[in-house]
């Protein structure tokens, strides 16, 4: 009965959607603000990776909102779990096998390096703060899977998190302080292609990378703690 109703309803929604996309030509180059970004993107912002330019400088406010969404999620998680202090004594878990242990000890710094590379070169090559941060977080995830029982210090990750956020906001506010708009890139674009270029985009991306990395690790850390005390 429920299936039948949902099929009928979804059929109606689908017809609506299909009727509406008849106006949107697939693949044809309609006049869009994207063309402006592609043509003038490099010389306006100095970043070769146009997507990064759009994400950070043109629509920087979205990214700020983006970061605060992630921050809300992290805080929400912490609030819902409601764990205050990490309980020292918890059920002993058998250590991972030797191969896995040494493998992850070896791989951990490499993944970290790759992550930071992606963050730093966000404005040049595809990637950026979010993707780099995710990679960094995956490094820590590997640590948790590999050598059980090791934990990052709780308030370190939280400190880094809020530091990244504050850095982002301070960069934005300096734009205001110097009399221009919020998130105005006050640094020189520099010569496209090399590392120190594209105004404040790299700085923002570093702040975002720092924040996303520490945040996702925090989330993973919370999730792992929480699974310990689940009723068997």
């Amino acid at each position: 009965m429920r299936k039948l109703i949902s099929i009928i309803l979804l059929g109606m929604v689908a017809t609506g959607l299909f009727m509406s996309i008849s106006q949107i030509p697939f693949g044809e180059p309609g006049e869009r603000i994207g063309d402006h970004f592609i043509n003038q993107g490099v010389n306006e912002t100095g970043a070769t990776n146009i997507v990064a330019a759009v994400v950070v400088s043109y629509r920087g406010f979205d990214t700020l909102g983006e970061v605060s969404v992630l921050f809300t999620a992290a805080m929400g998680l912490g609030a819902v779990i409601g764990l205050v202090r990490r309980k020292k004594t918890h059920t002993p878990i058998e250590p991972a096998s030797l191969i896995v242990y040494t493998g992850c000890r070896f791989l951990f710094p490499v993944i970290l390096l790759v992550g930071t590379y992606i963050v730093i070169h966000g404005h040049l090559t595809p990637g950026g703060g979010f993707q780099g941060g995710a990679v960094i977080a995956s490094a820590f995830l590997l640590m948790y899977l590999g050598c059980r029982g090791k934990r990052i210090r709780e308030n370190l990750s939280r400190g880094l998190e809020s530091l990244g956020g504050l850095l982002f906001i301070l960069l934005g506010v300096t734009g205001l302080v110097i009399g221009r708009d919020f998130l105005f890139s006050f640094l020189p674009e520099g010569e496209a292609g090399n590392l120190i270029s594209a105004g404040i985009i790299p700085l923002i991306y570093m702040a975002v990378g720092l924040k996303v990395g520490s945040e996702l690790t925090g989330i993973i850390d919370h999730l792992i703690e929480d699974t310990d005390e689940l009723p068997e």
Binding site: L64, S68, F71, N155, R158, G159, E161, S162, L163, G165, L166, I169, G172, V173, F182
Partner: peptide
């Protein structure tokens, strides 16, 4: 921006 900044700052203020 001001409430957002302060929200980010609270963990540090702790």
């Amino acid at each position: 921006v001001v409430p957002l900044g302060l929200a980010f700052a609270i963990p540090l203020l702790k």
